[in-house]
């Protein structure tokens, strides 16, 4: 299904061990360019490790991760790939604008780019407030603004909507869809299945295993179910039924 499209990320035989846990043992995966791919699975299934492997932050034991035609973590990718971790990685004692401006400066971007991304996430009114004084939803959007700096080709967001109210979540997913329409590749992780329907493509993970790489429609069609949550559980049960 995805074969005809170009891949933004190609993963072959990825093996990652964290401490005593073998997170991935030979994972193969392709993620299409210019699409919004949801990385869905329960907590601890390997979403963060997979994202960190694609960004090039994760020490891997084997396999190849190719991002935009280059090995993951290659220096030339640092202008084209951005990453927002689950813990946000922000300076809480700096203002919203100072946070964004610092990351813009180290990437050599002008002040106008700072204003653009702050406006894009709707934080223009809070730009002068300290990061630790804004609401939880606004705090997450600072991190998102930094990920938008420099119009990257690939944006990786780890659980960007956790703990946000439904209205804000819908706003963010609308924004992700807009970015994908503009040609940006987005990889967004979530453990909430009802967010799966907002994605173009789905990667379903469980305990480091790829349960399915499909689309929201494909997931429902394959299982014959109307509910994404149920469909995911159904796929897991099927996978376990096949295993000895």
């Amino acid at each position: 299904m995805l074969g005809a499209m170009t891949s933004a990320v190609t993963i072959r035989g990825l093996r990652v061990r964290r401490g005593r846990v073998q997170v991935f043992d030979g994972l193969d995966l392709d993620i299409a360019a210019g699409r919004l791919t949801g990385l869905i699975g329960p907590s601890g299934c390997g979403k963060t490790t997979l994202i960190r492997s694609i960004v090039g932050l994760q020490i891997v034991q084997g396999g190849d991760v190719t991002v935009l035609g280059r090995p993951a973590g290659a220096p030339e990718l640092r202008h084209r790939v951005t990453y927002s971790a689950q813990n946000d990685g922000l300076y809480r004692d700096l203002s919203v604008r100072d946070n964004v401006a610092y990351f813009a400066q180290i990437a050599g971007l002008p002040g106008s780019e700072v204003d653009r991304v702050i406006a894009a996430v709707g934080l223009a009114g809070q730009a002068k407030q300290r990061a630790d004084s804004v609401s939880g939803g606004q705090f997450r959007r600072i991190s998102l603004a930094i990920a938008l700096l420099g119009r990257p080709d690939l944006i990786l967001l780890d659980e960007p909507t956790v703990g946000l109210d439904p209205v804000l979540r819908a706003d963010l997913w609308d924004m992700f869809a807009r970015l994908a329409r503009d040609g940006v590749t987005l990889i967004v992780s979530s453990h909430v299945m009802d967010e799966a329907s907002r994605c173009d493509d789905l990667v379903l993970l469980r305990e480091g295993q790829l349960v399915a790489a499909t689309t929201p429609a494909g997931l429902l069609a394959e299982t014959g179910l109307a509910d994404a949550d149920q469909a995911f559980l159904e796929l897991i049960h099927r996978a376990e039924g096949v295993q000895p």
Binding site: L57, T82, Y83, A85, G89, F103, I106
Partner: peptide, 17 residues
């Protein structure tokens, strides 16, 4: 511990910087 160093490592930031 706050993740800012990790974030910097994904940017064009150099260690000497």
């Amino acid at each position: 511990t706050s993740g800012t160093l990790e974030r910097l490592m994904t940017t064009p930031m150099t260690k000497s910087g």
